[in-house]
Design a protein around this nucleic acid. Sequence first.
RNA 1: GGCGGCAUAGCCAAGUGGCUAAGGCAGCGGUCUGCAAAACCGUUAUUCACCGGUUCAAAUCCGGUUGCCGCCUCCA
Length: 416
Amino acid sequence: MDDKIINRAIKEKKSADEIAQRYINEFYKDMDALLVLRPTVEPRATQHIPQIIESIKGLLDKGFAYESNGDIYFSVEKFKDYGKLSRRKLDDMIAGARVCAINGKRHPLDFALWKKSKSDEPYWHSPWGDGRPGWHIECSVMSQFYLGETFDIHGGGQDLIFPHHENEIAQAEALTGKPFVHYWIHNGFVKINKEKMSKSLGNFFTIREILNDYHPEVLRLFLLSNHYRSPIDFSYDMLNKAENNLEKFYSFLLETERIKNVKPINSSFKLANPFSEQVKESKEEWEKAMDDDFNSAKAIGHLFSLLRACNHFIHEEGYKYEDGQKLLGEAADLIKKFGEVFGIFSEKPEHFIKKLKTKKEKSRSIDPAIIEDLIKKRAVYREKKEWEKADEIRNKLLEMGIQIMDTPKGTTWKVL
RNA sequence: GGCGGCAUAGCCAAGUGGCUAAGGCAGCGGUCUGCAAAACCGUUAUUCACCGGUUCAAAUCCGGUUGCCGCCUCCA
């Protein structure tokens, strides 16, 4: 239980539970908006007090923890592997100027497993008096409770490596004598101008702010373009590029929907073979990249290659043949399947493109009626082959930020 | 001060001992088009911050230098 929650609860004269629930709800709103799936289990520390107490008892019994004025501390010196995750040595850290001893601790880096409650604070009964759990114990206790003494993957931000994850390992392994987790996955930070984005620096954008202007899939594609371990510099410029790229895929998906309804020539297409090889290769390469430490940046590279192969196939008109059409459909399905893993391409292509257009119209205060009107006028000039006047209108539209596209089925337009 | 990470084209970004250093954006040339746009084709790093070393072979390993970032807090 976090001090911030307690302080807020006192300030607002509400229960800590209410405060926590409120923030959980806000968190859900953002995560749902980002198309993040809900976890299977979402344990709460306050609902696992007995297990936490049990663990602390075990650590005391084994001599890894000690009591001091009603608080229970973990003794880092007793755990010989302490520092193995963050590759730090206790002596080195003491040498660092910022560590100082706190009264009651035997070693400055010893951390609380159980804190004696002060008045006003929520508390639970324990063999050591009324108090609340320390700040690392709930993570290792709850994860082991649901996943076993040893489990495969533990994630978190890079800033949690020390001390939080280091302490989790110490608590868990001291108690069980078994490895805590097999793989640690630590993601890099989102940065602004090469600086960590953080509340205290004030250099942050909220999810809501961003989603106000961008489709959640745009943000996802942007984030997935980097390897999760690398830091990523956030900028609207990059977001715009991701938006264009996403539109590129949706345009292709829209095109394949149109092609699906084209009546094929009843014969086979000679280019189907190389294309089918490309599709197969993309599938294998994409999976290989994802199997290699979730290399989404590489996988997205293969996604682009597949897109190009598909567009090439369309360009060659392979889809006009029965087997070619089938193959293109399969390739499009594959792209959608990859997208599903990334949480992108979940919209109907038509909707996505329309939404994007509407959004841009709004932000540029563009009236579609005026655009349509100009396009009609231009069509008249084009009919009469008065190209100069037609081009004049096109340039005017371009100045307004409208790009028009002449197709066999008429003129369409998009907001730049 | 201690520890860790990063440095690859104009920009973003994969690649961690040996195929032509992925992919995207931007640029340039072409196909298509009345001209464009989109799409497609071609092109854009003899070289991976710098200096030395190991090796038949280095962006990749080792040592050093410079620059940037992060962690070192009873914040989880």
